[in-house]
Amino acid sequence: MAADNFALFLGCVAPLRYPGIEKATRELFKGLGYDLKEMTGAGCCPAPGVIRSFDQATWLALAARNLCIAEKQGCDILTICNGCYGSLFEANHMLQEDPELLKKVNEILAEVGMKYEGKVKVRHFAEVLFRDVGIERMKQKFTKPLSYNVAVHYGCHFSRPTKIKHLDDPERPRMLDELVEWTGSKSVPYADKNMCCGAGGGVRSRDSKFALSFTETKLKNMKAVNAQFIIDVCPFCHLQFDRGQKDLPGYDIPVIHLAQLYGLAMGLPESSLGLEAHEIKVTL
């Protein structure tokens, strides 16, 4: 697939809860010279925790439909959410590794006149920035030096399972910390940094109080190091931290997606960051 362009996969939470993440991503990649293609008619990835837990066959077929939309455009997929990345990457991996499974899924896709050839790569925008764009090209685009002390939250489905993703060290990842530090901000270490936000696996929708207990543990550790912002690369973790703090007295750490942080560093106006959609007020 063409390496110089991507099909933008939006998913659900970014476009329908935090459109600033979508807007900032579009502006960021436009500024870098990419012409992102629309994945017209794409749906939910579908979500790895809920839908895959209900029925893997449905999950796989719907993921394959999304992969087909990008394949038809001749582009690899760019995701802005760990959940979308997790689902599409894993589904793609399964289909590329198992010709029998691919055949079975294509029989389902034939119902809607589609066929997946297995040619697409699924990428996460953060690793594209890190690996394809790189620090030199990125720094040329930054016009506003930032000097925040932030708590980086990786989220589970960014680099794990590492045996198929090969992005970073599972215990001591560095990629997102470095991406944050390219802007001039400082990634502050905190206890249990790699812990889950609590939302995944269908836990948030089934038992929100239990999900929140994870979130509170993380927030307590972030607060202990005086983090000014939480930086994430997943709209679902973003939602869990942002909306979760409404129900957790004593916490009000603003939550910023990396695309929004990069938008800010590139001098985008605040109106392009969609900060009014955030529950916890973001003061820059």
Partner: peptide, 20 residues
């Protein structure tokens, strides 16, 4: 630009779900 506001795409999405 997803299944929202695109009835044909949504119908395809639902067809797959019916099939499974």
């Amino acid at each position: 630009p997803t299944t929202l506001g695109d009835p044909a795409a949504l119908a395809d999405f639902q067809k797959i779900m019916n099939k499974t």
